[in-house]
Nucleic acid binder design. Structure first.
Ligand SMILES: [Zn+2]
Ligand SMILES: [Zn+2]
Ligand SMILES: [Zn+2]
Ligand SMILES: [Zn+2]
Lengths: 166, 166
DNA sequence: AATATTTTGTTATAGTGTAACGCAATCTTT
DNA sequence: AAAGATTGCGTTACACTATAACAAAATATT
C-alpha cells in the first residue's frame, strides 16, 4: 500500500482515495455554503469507486439500488453540481466523468487515459499549461477553458495488457 | 484578401481554402487509392463552407438537397472515411467536425475554438506537443491519441464581440 | 408559521451515434 | 466480357447521451 495514490498503480490505497475525496468534498461544500446532499454525495462516492471515468447512465442503477429516483435528470443534476464545485471533471472524449483529486481550487485538468484498463490520471502539468497559454497568447486568443485528454497505454498495460486496475 | 488564410481573419480568401482543401483531398485519395465518392466529397465541401465545426446532423439537410439519402449513417460513414484519411477532425467537446488544412500526414490537431464566433483554428504547436510527450513519457505513458481543444475568445471577438466571421 | 428558495421527482423529448441487412456499384480475376 | 469478391450506399431500427418543463418536496429565510 502506498501512502499516497500513485499514478497507474493498481494496488495503491484506493479506500484512502475515496475517503479523502469525500472528506474534502464535505469540507469544501461546508466552507462554500453549498449543500452536498445525499444524492450528490452518493454520486461522488460512486464516481470515486475507481479511477476509470464513469458514464452518467452507469450511475443510474446504483442510484436506484440506494432507493433514489433513477431518471437521467437526477444524475445529471448531481454531476452538474459536482462539476460546478470542481469535485468532478467531465472527459469529453469519453462522455464520462471522473473525480478530481485536488478540487480545492478551480483548474483545468489534463488527463492521461489508458485505452486498455481505462485508468485515468489527472495531471497538473505546468509545461503543458505554459505551452498552451503561450501558443494561444501569441495569436491573441484568450483562453477560457481547456480540454486536454491523452489516450494511450499506461505503464501497467504495456507489460501486462489485460490487467484491469480499479 | 490575404494570400493565405490567416488565423481568425474573417476576410481571408476562403474560396481558396475550399478549393485547396478539395484539390488536396482529391490528390491524396488518388495517391492512396482511396475512393473520394460524390457523397464523401460533398460532405467535405460542406464542412469546408466555414471554419466553424459542423455537427453531423447539420449536414443532413444539405445532403438531402443534393439528392442524396439523408439518414444519419450516410453522413457518419462519409465522416468516418474523411477522418480516416485525415481530411477531417472531430472536435470532441463540440460533437462536431472540421476540415483539416494539412492532411498530407497524419497528426494530432490542437484547436483554438472561439466561444463567440465559433471559428476554430488548428495549430501545429511543437511546444505543446513536446510538453505533452514529456509529461506522459516521464510517467511511462505511451501516447496514442491526443485531444487538445482550447475554448476562448479570438482576437476579433475580444474587440467586436458580436461579429460572426463566415 | 409564512414565505421564498433550492432540490428532487417525473414525464417527455432532443441530440448524437451505431447495428444490421440487403441492394447497388465498383474492383479483381478469370 | 462474365463471374465472383469487395466496397459503398439505402433503409430501418435502435442505443446512448443529455436537457426542457413543470409539479412536488425539502430546506432556508423572514
Ligand atoms: Zn485511488
Ligand atoms: Zn481536477
Ligand atoms: Zn478559410
Ligand atoms: Zn489537422
Amino acid at each position: 500500500m502506498n501512502p499516497s495514490p500513485l499514478p497507474f498503480e493498481p494496488d495503491h490505497n484506493h479506500d484512502r482515495c475515496i475517503s479523502e475525496a469525500l472528506e474534502q468534498a464535505r469540507h469544501l461544500c461546508r466552507e462554500r455554503r453549498q449543500r452536498l446532499t445525499p444524492i450528490r454525495e452518493l454520486v461522488l462516492r460512486l464516481i470515486w469507486q475507481s479511477h476509470q471515468p464513469l458514464g452518467a447512465y452507469e450511475l443510474l442503477p446504483a442510484l436506484a439500488e440506494a432507493g433514489f429516483n433513477s431518471a437521467p435528470p437526477t444524475v445529471y443534476r448531481a454531476l452538474e453540481f459536482l462539476q460546478s464545485q470542481g469535485l468532478v471533471h467531465r472527459i469529453a472524449s469519453l462522455n464520462a466523468f471522473i473525480g478530481c483529486p485536488h478540487p480545492e481550487q478551480s483548474h483545468q485538468g489534463c488527463f492521461l487515459i489508458c485505452r486498455s484498463c481505462k485508468s485515468t490520471l489527472e495531471l497538473e502539468s505546468q509545461p503543458i499549461q505554459q505551452a498552451i497559454r503561450s501558443s494561444a497568447g501569441s495569436l491573441g486568443f484568450t483562453i477560457e477553458q481547456e480540454t486536454v485528454e491523452i489516450v494511450g497505454l499506461c505503464p501497467n498495460c504495456q507489460t501486462r495488457p489485460q490487467r484491469d486496475p480499479q
